[in-house]
Amino acid sequence: KELVLVLYDYQEKSPREVTVKKGDILTLLNSTNKDAWKVEVDDRQGFIPAAYLKKL
């Protein structure tokens, strides 16, 4: 599985998104959309803007 590093805090703005903190390391589920990547956070799945993430 692929991991990503969170570069900036992000507060979810819709039910399809998830809230993350800078420095979190998350499982990347889908990065086919260049604008928003799907990740898993504490058994929740949701989207975060790709600009907030860096592949490890």
Results as ranks from 00 to 15, higher is better:
K1A: 10
K1V: 12
K1N: 10
K1M: 11
E2D: 12
E2F: 12
E2G: 11
E2K: 11
E2C: 15
E2V: 14
L3T: 07
L3S: 06
L3E: 05
L3H: 08
L3Y: 15
V4Q: 00
V4Y: 05
L5D: 01
L5E: 08
L5F: 07
V6K: 00
V6P: 01
L7N: 01
L7C: 08
L7E: 02
L7M: 09
L7I: 09
Y8V: 10
Y8F: 13
Y8M: 14
Y8N: 11
D9G: 05
D9V: 04
D9H: 05
Y10I: 02
Y10N: 02
Y10F: 07
Q11R: 11
Q11P: 04
Q11H: 13
Q11L: 12
Q11I: 14
E12P: 13
E12H: 09
E12Y: 07
K13S: 10
K13M: 11
K13C: 10
K13A: 10
K13Q: 13
K13F: 09
S14A: 09
S14M: 07
S14W: 09
P15R: 09
P15F: 08
R16H: 14
R16K: 12
R16M: 14
E17L: 06
E17H: 09
V18D: 01
V18R: 02
V18C: 08
V18I: 15
V18Y: 06
V18A: 04
V18E: 01
T19P: 03
T19G: 05
T19K: 06
V20H: 03
V20C: 08
V20Q: 00
V20R: 00
V20M: 02
K21E: 04
K21D: 01
K22S: 07
K22Q: 10
K22P: 02
K22R: 13
K22E: 06
G23K: 00
G23A: 01
G23E: 01
D24T: 10
D24Y: 08
D24V: 06
D24G: 04
D24C: 09
I25A: 00
I25Q: 03
I25Y: 04
L26F: 04
L26P: 01
L26A: 07
L26Q: 00
L26G: 05
T27C: 10
T27A: 08
T27S: 08
T27W: 13
L28Q: 00
L28F: 03
L28I: 04
L29G: 01
L29F: 03
L29T: 04
L29C: 05
N30G: 07
S31W: 10
S31K: 06
S31N: 07
S31F: 06
S31H: 09
T32E: 14
T32Q: 13
N33R: 12
N33M: 09
N33I: 06
N33Q: 10
N33D: 13
K34H: 11
K34Y: 11
K34C: 14
D35A: 12
D35N: 13
D35K: 13
D35H: 14
D35G: 11
D35M: 13
D35L: 14
A36C: 15
A36T: 13
A36V: 15
A36G: 08
W37D: 00
W37K: 00
W37P: 00
K38I: 15
K38V: 14
K38S: 08
K38Y: 15
K38A: 09
K38Q: 14
V39F: 03
V39Y: 02
V39L: 03
V39W: 02
E40T: 08
V41E: 02
V41I: 13
D42Y: 10
D42G: 15
D42C: 12
D42I: 08
D43S: 12
D43K: 11
D43N: 14
D43V: 07
D43A: 10
R44F: 09
Q45F: 08
Q45R: 09
Q45N: 07
Q45C: 11
Q45E: 11
Q45T: 13
Q45M: 10
Q45K: 09
Q45Y: 08
G46V: 15
G46D: 03
G46L: 15
G46W: 13
F47V: 07
F47R: 03
F47D: 07
I48W: 02
I48C: 08
I48L: 12
I48F: 02
P49E: 04
P49V: 06
P49I: 07
A50R: 12
A50W: 05
A50T: 09
A51I: 14
A51F: 13
A51R: 15
A51D: 09
Y52A: 09
Y52T: 04
L53D: 01
L53T: 01
L53M: 05
L53V: 09
L53W: 02
L53C: 11
L53P: 01
L53N: 00
L53F: 03
L53Q: 00
K54F: 11
K54Y: 11
K54H: 11
K54V: 13
L56N: 01
L56R: 02
L56K: 02
L56H: 04
